[in-house]
Design a protein around this nucleic acid. Structure first.
Lengths: 65, 65
DNA sequence: ATACAATGTAATATATAACTTGCATATGTA
DNA sequence: TACATATGCAAGTTATATATTACATTGTAT
């Protein structure tokens, strides 16, 4: 699942570590989501979006390669 | 996870069964998602949204009680 | 050059999404 | 009536998201 999490996080100068603790998962989970290597739960997507001040669509909808 | 899947599906006169087969899950899975009783994967949310001609935000973002 | 912070990645373990089967109930319709 | 369709729901199983631990790599600063 390609997405805009990494680019958005970097623009905000937040580390994977910090994002992870804010949304209640581990750093590894954030890393794998950013790589697009797995398929996060809706709740986690919503938590990440709120933490990055974006909506679901902005982070996860029809993200271009 | 409250959402707008059920109301949207009914407006389109699609059964749970049909939606389920179109997105590749079982009828029970659709039923539980509509009830808000579980936390579907992002891929499944995207498949449902496309099948119902909606975006993620329209179905799953900040849905009022 | 050393040290540290951030990230990538892999193995194993655990929690839970999703499946399967089955049965109950409601509703429509022949 | 009886039959079919749509939905709700529950128990047990399977697949997979996520956790845990650990080590490697990269960049930056000292």
């Amino acid at each position: 699942m390609k997405n805009n999490v990494k680019i958005t996080r970097i623009k905000l100068s937040i580390t994977q570590q910090r994002l992870a603790q804010r949304v209640g998962v581990t750093r590894q989970t954030i890393g794998l989501i950013e790589k697009g290597e797995y398929n996060p739960s809706l709740q986690l997507c919503v938590s990440i979006a709120k933490e990055l001040n974006k909506t679901l669509d902005e982070l996860f909808w029809e993200v271009e390669l």
